[in-house]
Design a protein around this nucleic acid. Structure first.
Lengths: 106, 106
DNA sequence: TAAGAGCGTTAGTCATGACTTACCGTAAGT
DNA sequence: ACTTACGGTAAGTCATGACTAACGCTCTTA
């Protein structure tokens, strides 16, 4: 259930915008905060969460710190989505339904 | 930016479990709340949010109300993900990089 | 070593949201 | 009509999280 971090990270609109900007190209924190409606420390905090979720990668460049989007971090989301492709889990459905009926009879 | 509702809806773990259960088969609210760590009203509130996000569909069945997952609601998520497929936006990257270098030279 | 740039972190505030209990409406059965 | 089942809603509580201002650390340049 490590995808919880990914979902939580992408839940915030500001964080999604940060990620989308980084997906267009690497940026330093200051340049990233430039033109955003929130302060630079706020962006820093968002970057921390995105990093924990594996969605961004940072790299020290002198006194600046360059962030870039890590598209592989989206894999867990894709995997989760693929679990709902049509009725791939229909095999479980009968079993679950059976357990439910069982519980109902008690 | 209608995907905000979808992201917000799927951000909560309890709500994801509700959706996952419904994806395995339609359920009434009571049966759904059965075996979940939260109360039935809580499930009702979650269902309301999932419905607003287009992730579930409800249908009156006598005094009961049957909910089922609507997989089409995941389309907006897929679309968002597809926007990051590899480097489809690499054209922008050079431009952004150029602006960064420009700023660095001032 | 001093000074400034760039960022992360801390402390504190404020809004949001997840939850429970209690209540109310509606549909079916007696 | 009365009662019971089922579920949505209201009110209130508590935790979380997004944000800002202030501070401190590290790296570079003079």
């Amino acid at each position: 259930m490590t995808n919880a971090l990914t979902f939580a990270a992408l839940a915030d609109p500001t964080r999604r915008e940060v990620f989308e900007r980084l997906a267009r190209g690497p940026l330093a924190v200051g340049d990233l905060a430039q033109g955003m409606p929130v302060s630079r420390p706020a962006v820093s905090q968002h970057l921390k969460i995105l990093k924990q979720a594996g969605l961004v990668i940072d790299e020290a460049m002198g006194t600046r710190r360059i962030y870039r989007a890590d598209r592989d971090g989206l894999a867990v989301l894709r995997a989760w989505l693929d679990g709902f492709r049509d009725n791939a889990l229909d095999a479980y459905q009968a079993e679950i339904q059976r357990q439910m009926d069982e519980r109902k009879n008690t």
